[in-house]
Simulated assay, not measured.
Amino acid sequence: MLSFVVAVSENNVIGKDNSLLWHLPSDLKRFKEITLSESKTMIMGRKTFEALPYVLPGRKHIILTRNKNYKVEDEAVIIINDIAFLKPMIESKEEFFVIGGGEIYKLLMPYAKKLYLTIVHENFCGDTFFPEYKNFQWTIIKKQEGVYDENNQYKNTFLILERK
């Protein structure tokens, strides 16, 4: 089962120049809690992987890239060049986390069963967007107001949605 983990602005922006446009420590903590547990696997594009500060500990990383020569020397990293290799994950009852970027979300949206969304209640100018999704196809199973304080300077809401 594919689940998306993403923070998105009111105007669907998720980033600019391969970076986030906001800093929300509470959202980073949530991301870690969702993706970090025994044998969790994250699926991402090459640019998203390269934007990480390092290979995130305790998680497997699957990098989807068109570059057949792309290599990463780390046991926690698997590189694939064809979406067909994701079929067992798409059909699995086990949860696999798609963490970006925009092209990967768009490519895999038809297969997503769950969305862990952080809505940042602000508009941003960016170059990377979350794909549009139809609300009527999803059920909100959890909604929680995010932390808004001196460290988390944008109002935000945490949502978990499941495909109907």
Score class of each variant (00 low, 15 high):
L2F: 13
F4T: 10
V5Y: 01
V5I: 15
V6F: 03
V8K: 09
S9Y: 04
E10N: 12
N11E: 11
V13E: 07
V13Q: 03
G15W: 03
D17T: 00
L20P: 06
L21H: 03
S26V: 07
S26Q: 07
D27G: 08
D27T: 09
L28K: 10
L28R: 08
K29V: 14
R30H: 12
R30F: 04
R30N: 12
R30S: 09
T35M: 11
L36Y: 00
L36H: 00
L36Q: 00
L36E: 00
S37E: 14
E38L: 10
E38A: 12
S39F: 14
T41E: 11
I43N: 01
I43G: 07
I43L: 05
M44Q: 08
G45M: 07
K47G: 03
T48P: 08
F49P: 01
F49A: 03
F49W: 01
E50N: 11
E50S: 09
E50M: 11
A51V: 02
A51T: 10
L52G: 01
P53Q: 11
Y54A: 11
L56S: 00
P57A: 00
G58S: 04
K60P: 02
I63E: 02
L64E: 04
N67C: 09
K68P: 01
Y70E: 03
K71Y: 11
K71M: 12
E73S: 15
D74T: 00
V77A: 07
I78R: 12
I79R: 08
I80Q: 01
N81D: 10
N81Y: 05
D82Y: 02
D82S: 12
L86R: 01
P88T: 08
M89W: 05
I90Q: 03
S92F: 11
E95K: 10
F96M: 04
F97L: 11
F97R: 04
F97S: 01
I99G: 02
G100C: 09
G100D: 05
G102T: 09
G102A: 15
Y105L: 09
L107D: 05
T118P: 07
T118G: 08
V120M: 04
H121I: 12
E122F: 10
E122V: 08
C125R: 13
G126D: 05
D127Q: 08
D127C: 10
D127G: 05
T128F: 01
F129G: 03
F129L: 09
P131T: 03
P131W: 04
Y133D: 08
N135G: 11
Q137M: 14
W138G: 06
T139S: 15
T139R: 14
T139A: 14
I140A: 15
I140D: 13
I141T: 15
Q144I: 14
Q144D: 15
Y148S: 10
Y148T: 06
E150H: 13
E150N: 14
N151P: 05
N151I: 02
K155F: 10
N156L: 07
N156A: 00
N156V: 03
F158G: 06
F158C: 07
L161W: 05
E162S: 02
